[in-house]
Design a protein around this nucleic acid. Sequence first.
DNA 1: GCCAATCGTTACGGTACCGTATCAGATAAT
DNA 2: ATTATCTGATACGGTACCGTAACGATTGGC
Lengths: 118, 118
Amino acid sequence: MSIQLTTAEVLGLWHNVHLALVHDDEPDLSARQISILLTVYLEAPPHTVRDLAARLAVSKPVITRALDTMGKMGLVSRRRDEKDRRNVLIQRTVDGALFVERLADTISVRARELRTDP
Amino acid sequence: MSIQLTTAEVLGLWHNVHLALVHDDEPDLSARQISILLTVYLEAPPHTVRDLAARLAVSKPVITRALDTMGKMGLVSRRRDEKDRRNVLIQRTVDGALFVERLADTISVRARELRTDP
DNA sequence: GCCAATCGTTACGGTACCGTATCAGATAAT
DNA sequence: ATTATCTGATACGGTACCGTAACGATTGGC
């Protein structure tokens, strides 16, 4: 079974959620940062810079910079791979998990409001 | 009736759509830019800089800059209000409408794929 | 007419991101 | 052991955005 939504519904959802994200005091992550964050939190580890760059089809410096920023925010952390010390393993954090949870809440709330509060 | 989605579903949707947006060659709009664009295209005109700033709870220069960028991209246009020449009316464009349409398509496709292609 | 209020824009210094090229470190190949 | 390959990080010049403050233009109040 799949999720069927009309054009008006998906755009309304996108609109409402983005308004909510801009409205609150959380930092606005870019589309690339969101993609990286959710890849790390939703897909199975291990996650390396190289893998993430391939997954998003962007260059490695893009990943490094995004990890720098999100690392400062406490949303992810990095650790050297002891088996192959060239690799860096990207790991989840408690704060990152809470951030993703809040994002899910925001989306869910706006999805519920779609038809009841047009 | 409202739209009920599980946490896994909303996060999967957000993840997949953002991956698709990063993947294609379209420019990545910020959350603020998306909010402005969809407000202009989904809500009833007229739209002024002041109104958009209030709607997003941001300062007016934020709106001016976003309109500069999206104007260069051809997604919106500006026109002086002849009734009150202090106002600027933000208007839709053909390219902007197509952009919004493609965005809706992308979201719809990923929503349909949610359970069939996990 | 004149002054205050409102509109959108611009100026300023600072930060973050971009793409490309290059880098040092670790591993693999010979 | 030496070279080649792979990793992630860094350097570089350029662009865009940030928040705050000031600005010219236009309108309304008196």
